[in-house]
Nucleic acid binder design. Structure first.
Lengths: 334, 334
DNA sequence: CTGTTAGCGCCTTCAT
DNA sequence: ATGAAGGCGCTAACAG
């Protein structure tokens, strides 16, 4: 293939070094059964010609690509960005490449996209919070090896998740402790696993505190939906708000401030996730710190273990840490 | 290969349909020269067996992977995130996959990483703001097809860039118009192309306004470096600050507010980029809106054109729009 | 219109 | 220790 493609192939090296293809291949793969002197010569020639093996051809014959796929719902969401970053760096440290698939919050495309990316990679790391449980269970076997992020434990796939439920419970207790008895919950988009976990915590809290009212309000998962919820929130008469995430909290905080409502004097607002910006709003946001970077790292570690045949824990759960900042305070006197 | 790998290959389909490999291949590739009835039967069998062509094998023989590589300096930077997102969605719309390479701000690894990713893809989109110009020029030919983001026009590679210079000039004029005569510039990390552009605008401004003093201060490109710069900024006696980017501006804003310095009454602060969070600080940040999503889209469009053999403009420049918010105001009376 | 025959570039038995 | 040959799964001439 000499000059045909412009790229130098193993054939060129073999010819230039006066050896066979196999020898070059062996040398390039560090096979020690090659005479040291010969090996050196081959390496010299390879270096001189700037040769390195075509990864595509290697992938085909070896059946591995040194690449993994990461499927995430929305590249614009800071939490997924952090997961991706943790993942990407960890994988890169072990010489793996990362193919990203942003499903753009379209649950319908998740199946096709993960299947498609799987075929060009050695495995997929799936972050699909809203895929129905049965669909997920049916999809997993076709994706092996696969690791799942932020879903309950699964059969045949390691799971890395943050415990949204205990974190939410902590947040509620925090507000209850401050004297709040009427809470609004900006519920985010329906059908997500972490949403169900949050809701579970709220149900528990209502059980525990009979004098606690929590009003669930529909919302999206971004700034705008938080800002748009302002009227609905005010109408509930709640003295504190649990936002689905920090984005929603920030949107609400901004809209509420424009209305002249003071936070936390008139209204307490708690976010969720602790995205990097949460500490820079004013007041800074009280929230639950989901360890997204670590989630990403662990997801890679699980994948790496599966690829190596090592077995890893079937399910690891990270506990978000509540971080108290200025956006929550005592219930206003009435 | 029937059950050997567990995957169904073209051979299985051919056998099951009682036709040759070529026929299956033709059908799967929409080659119309196949008898309609036969084609239907083959499609039926393929569907039944859940067959679809192995992308690796196709890549090897076709010489294309339907994948592009994106090299970016830091996945944690909101601007690069937006570029990536715009890129990823545009590419995905045309059926292309995206391999990401986060160089983690290590200029030394940019060369190796872009070369490595190039070999598994059909082209690379390079975002390497701090790579020395000569290194870039030398690297480009080896990466073809390649498109470059946020660098001056290059030989043999389309360039998509925002005009940091005119945007910075606008910001300076804005502050000058408000009466500010002593400005501090938080200069970011040295050696970046956009940094040079910013500095150029500052030099111009000093030419134009002989009564204008701009003091350059070292800084990083993130929150912390902005916060850390607070003492140095105060020492300069500047009444307004041009931060390298919104991150730095937000860090400074936060630190300055803690000091009891009021923004913009005591000090004006301007950011750069208009990241999504810039409008949610308090006061909201005056900044220059770099159209990062659009940068990403255009970069893909340029790549797509090169891949198709179409020619695209060798260099497109987008003008950031200044957006005036609350963090800048009239110079304080003295 | 369909089947047969070469590869794509590389790794890996199998001989020697 | 080295070379020759086969094949990874697929597409693209080349025949019929």
């Amino acid at each position: 293939m000499a000059g045909s493609t412009g790229r130098v192939g193993i054939t060129d090296v073999a010819r230039a070094a006066g050896v066979s293809l196999s020898t070059v291949s062996r040398v390039m793969n560090g096979n020690t059964s090659v005479d040291a002197a010969l090996a050196d010569r081959v390496r010299g020639v390879a270096a001189e010609l700037g040769y390195s093996a075509n990864p595509l051809a290697r992938s085909l014959v070896l059946g591995r690509t040194q690449t993994i796929a990461v499927v995430i719902p929305d590249l614009a969401n800071p939490t997924f960005q952090s997961i991706l970053r943790g993942l990407s760096r960890a994988a890169s440290d072990e010489g793996f490449h990362v193919l990203i698939a942003d499903t753009n919050e379209q649950v319908e495309t998740e199946h096709a996209l993960s299947t498609a990316t799987r075929r060009r990679t050695d495995g997929v790391i799936l972050c699909a919070p809203r895929m129905p449980a049965e669909d997920l269970a049916a999809l997993l076997p076709t994706l092996q090896p696969v690791v799942v992020i932020n879903r309950p434990p699964q059969d045949g796939a390691p799971t890395i998740a943050a415990d949204y439920r205990v974190a939410m419970a902590e947040l509620v207790e925090h507000l209850y402790g401050l004297g709040h008895r009427t809470l609004a919950f900006l519920a985010g988009v329906g059908g997500s696993a972490s949403g169900a976990a949050r809701r579970g915590a709220l149900a528990d809290a209502r059980e525990i505190h009979s004098d606690l009212t929590i009003i669930e309000l529909a919302s999206g998962v971004d700034f705008d939906s938080g800002a748009r919820a302002v009227d609905a929130v005010v109408e509930t008469g709640a003295t504190a708000v649990l936002a689905f995430n920090d984005l929603v909290a920030m949107g609400l905080l901004s809209a509420v401030t424009e209305r002249g409502i003071r936070v936390p004097e008139d209204l307490s607002i708690a976010g969720f996730d602790d995205i990097p910006f949460a500490r820079y709003t004013s007041p800074p946001l009280t929230t639950a710190a989901v360890p997204a970077l670590e989630l990403g790292r662990r997801a890679w570690a699980a994948m790496s273990a599966r690829l190596a045949g090592t077995d890893s824990p079937p399910s690891t759960v990270l506990i978000p840490q509540m971080v108290l900042r200025g956006s929550t305070g005592p219930v206003p006197p009435r």
